[in-house]
Design a protein around this nucleic acid. Structure first.
Length: 495
RNA sequence: GGCCCCAUCGUCUAGCCCGGCCUAGGACACCAGGUUUUCAUCCUGGCGACAGGGGUUCAAAUCCCCUUGGGGUCACCA
């Protein structure tokens, strides 16, 4: 089959873009880019109640964030416009009328009440739930008469006998007995078409050649293949991607972690790390290369190499990748990326930070080996923007400091010793970290103390954290006044 | 429950299609050691898997069957 390669991603704007959806989009996009096809976006907004323009924009933004672009879509147009399903209603109605005309679809006058009753009976008899076909053989004339008389009806697809098989690029040969496929509803009684119907109409109309989507759609596929053939078209090639699972081994849901792409962007995962991680769910470059660029991914990606089994979303590995990408960034880049997350905490303004940019760069440089997301940078450096009296002491830091019985005395003695040395340091000039560091070490030795006896309480005093960059660097960031004040405060708080 | 899909270290995976090079490779996590004022980075080492059972074959992680386990789906949602 040598039709032009056209793939699509068709999100439903009824919520934020799911991280699994982001991977689906990524794989579709990569396939088109690798093999020189078109990648298009279509908005599946057939649910008028839950679909919103806000979600649609958020989804498009998310896709752009991870570096995807599309050749056709709701915002860029294209030869197969419109790209919103609700705007294609006339096309859907035309196809539905055709199918009804040819007897490949029929009117079903069964009420919801009767259907519910039917389901109940089937449950009681432990039979499978499926439409029993009551209206399937209604004479055409009667069907038309009742419709004209104003009786409500849905349009059902008449599933033929036999079996439906298709080659799946991920699963291989897949076969369904048509007996397992019920006569499903194509058009609701209010005239609106259902998902399974429009998706086939639109894919056919837009000349989609390959459909790659999540495995949850696998059971829909026979319905869609059958419908497509009834329409006289050649079905697209399929590829059903393995599911992304939560730690409970079930389809990733909010129970076990963040599910939206936007959540991870908000947490400050580097964009390239997000893409890289998504690639690793169900696909591997060569089995040994874990970190690679989007370009490398596109150069090597093939749908046939995608694995079949679902993968548990491993946030630890994701975080590790985040850290790895962060350590590859230049200081300047990293600072720019961290900036919005720092500002989001509301303790400092952009103007104030820009005014002392070298200071900020120094903090970023010292913290970079410890953070895996930009959000973590903001968290870890919150102490720098806190009031001297209001530094938050982390539990582990506090317990570490309290292990030293003499902590208060040590701190008091050190403060006395330190004060005159820092007093000579005007606020405008930075503390001389190297000098204070050497002198402090000498002081500790002279007092016959162990290093941690001073450093642990001192770290809590200055930063409130158990670990972190060099303490004397922290002093220069804080400045002489804040350093001394924080030690004073800690003497009270650690007592 | 019916139908469908899946099955290699705790996790992500390479190998499986085209049996032998696999005493199964890489990565995350974990553990131990080194560097270090802490945490972290970085380096070194370790732990750790072919779900089970039958076949086929000279030979099976790789092919076939069964069992078990897990998942998906059963709407006038998408």
């Amino acid at each position: 089959m040598t039709r032009p390669l056209r793939v699509r991603f068709a999100p439903s704007p009824t919520g934020q873009l799911h991280i699994g959806g982001a991977r689906t989009a990524l794989f579709n996009w990569a396939y088109a880019r690798r093999f020189g096809g078109k990648f298009l976006l279509r908005i599946e907004d057939t649910d008028p109640v839950r679909s919103t323009a806000e979600f649609e924009h958020a989804i498009l933004d998310g896709l752009r964030e991870i570096g995807l672009d599309w050749d056709e879509g709701p915002d860029v147009g294209g030869p197969f416009a419109p790209y919103h399903q609700v705007k294609r209603l006339e096309i859907h109605k035309r196809y539905a009328a055709e199918l009804l005309e040819r007897g490949q679809a029929y009117r079903c006058f069964c009420t919801r009440e009767r259907l519910e009753e039917m389901t109940k009976e089937q449950d009681a008899k432990k039979e499978k739930n499926a439409y029993d076909g009551r209206c399937r053989e209604l004479p055409v004339a009667e069907s038309a008469r009742r419709a004209t008389a104003g009786e409500a009806f849905t349009l059902r697809f008449r599933v033929p006998a036999g079996e439906t098989r298709f080659q799946d690029h991920v699963r291989g040969d897949v076969v369904f007995d048509n007996k397992e496929v019920e006569d499903w509803v194509m058009v609701r009684s209010d005239g609106n078409p259902t998902y399974n119907f429009v998706v086939v109409c639109d894919d056919a109309d837009m000349e989609i050649s390959h459909v790659f989507r999540g495995e949850e759609h696998l059971v829909n596929t026979p319905k869609q293949v059958l419908l497509c053939r009834a329409l006289g078209k050649t079905p697209p090639e399929f590829g059903h991607l393995p599911l992304m699972l939560g730690t409970d081994r079930k389809k990733l849901s909010k129970r076990t972690g963040d599910t939206a792409l936007s959540d991870y962007i908000a947490r400050g995962f580097p964009r390239a790390a997000i893409v890289n991680f998504l690639c690793l769910q169900g696909w591997a470059l060569d089995g040994s290369t874990e970190v690679f660029s989007v370009d490398e991914f596109v150069q090597h990606f093939d749908i046939d190499d995608v694995g079949k089994s679902g993968s548990i979303f491993d946030i630890e590995k994701f975080l590790w990748l985040g850290g790895d990408y962060i350590r590859r960034e230049s200081l300047e880049e990293l600072a720019e990326h961290c900036l919005p997350h720092v500002l989001a905490r509301g303790a400092v303004t952009e103007g104030a930070l820009r005014l002392r940019w070298p200071w900020f760069l120094s903090v970023v440089g010292a913290e970079r080996e410890r953070i895996r997301t930009y959000g973590e940078f903001a968290e870890r450096t919150a102490y720098l923007f806190a009031a001297d009296e209001g530094v938050e002491y982390a539990d582990d830091a506090l317990s570490g400091a309290k292990k030293h019985a003499q902590r208060v005395d040590t701190l008091r003695a050190y403060l006395e010793w330190l004060r005159p040395r820092l007093a000579a340091t005007p606020e405008a000039n930075p503390v001389d970290a190297a000098a204070v560091r050497d002198a402090t070490k000498a002081w500790v030795a002279e007092k016959g103390l162990k290093m941690p006896a001073l450093f642990q309480p001192l770290r809590v005093a200055l930063t409130g954290l158990a670990g972190g960059p060099d303490l004397f660097d922290a002093m220069t960031w804080l400045g002489a006044a804040a350093t001394l004040r924080r030690i004073e405060v800690a003497i009270e708080r650690l007592a």
